[in-house]
Design a protein around this nucleic acid. Structure first.
Lengths: 152, 152
DNA sequence: TTAGTTGCAAAGGCTTTGCACGCGC
DNA sequence: GCGCGTGCAAAGCCTTTGCAACTAA
């Protein structure tokens, strides 16, 4: 994570306490927080941080390619710090849980050149949908959560 | 298209002129309109139709599985009437053009069972991003459009 | 020092909701 | 005629913007 901060500083990113906290909140695997969740967590350490600042920082991290925006539910966007580790998402239709997965092989190869209609395809986003183990089990499904994280 | 209306009536969908017009607007391949665009086109034939009614109808068509919601840009959702013909999307990073593509093979097979973390995977969404022929060509790129349609 | 950042509050885009009237069945 | 569907307008959620005060380098 301090790697990230170093890298950004090298690119001329002015390092403020607000930006540091935002970057720290967005650390780890299977992290897919909304802007509001990032703000809430950042505010635990820096109570006066404003939403606008969080949106600014997130937008810059996305523009710099350090964080990826994912819209899995059509509501608020989620921010994924795993941008340097190409991966796909497994999304539970029951509780909203999101897991990162990294199948072998080049996902771009899935679309034959003959079917690209002349497009210069440079990226592919793949989302698998289905029920997670907890929601697939008989009985009450896992409660939907606004704070979707990796289990355990 | 009248197939669609018949099917819906059979399911107890009360057939109003507003719903008929919405269904008609959403006819064809490579159609990916926003709710507002659907409303604008519907209003050409039925000037008094309200946005709320369009949203209601779209929501119902999605719930009934007749239309798919796609969020390709993080802005307004787009509605894709091609729900009965499984396909993927090719999205131009320059002008926003969206094309449907249907590679051979089962896209679900891309994710090995061993990497499903116990999820019962039932669907997969794939979006390819890149430049369309017009935007890849040197010179002024195609103007971004709020009315993204199939070329020609 | 000084240009870039922050916080606040207001505005903006997209979507949903509440309620009285209207219309398909 | 009944009950669902409609239109209107207001509210809601998420995000962006304008501007004066502040601060990292």
């Amino acid at each position: 994570m301090s790697d990230l901060l170093e890298r950004l500083r090298g690119r001329g990113w002015r390092l403020t306490s607000q930006r540091r906290v935002v970057a720290e909140v967005l650390d780890g695997d299977h992290v897919h927080l909304t802007a509001d969740e990032v703000h809430a967590r950042a505010a635990r350490r820096l109570p006066e941080i404003s939403r606008a600042t969080v949106y600014n920082a997130l937008g810059e991290l996305v523009a710099l390619g350090e964080v990826a925006e994912v819209s899995t539910d059509g509501r608020a966007k989620r921010y994924d710090p795993n941008a340097h580790h190409p991966h796909q998402h497994l999304v539970c239709s029951g509780c909203g849980l999101i897991r990162d997965v990294r199948p072998d092989g080049d996902p771009l190869a899935v679309l034959p050149a003959a079917e690209r209609f002349g497009f210069a395809v440079s990226a592919v986003e793949i989302t698998y949908r289905g029920l997670c183990p907890a929601c697939a089990r008989p009985g009450p499904p896992a409660a939907p959560s606004n704070d979707v994280r990796a289990p355990g």
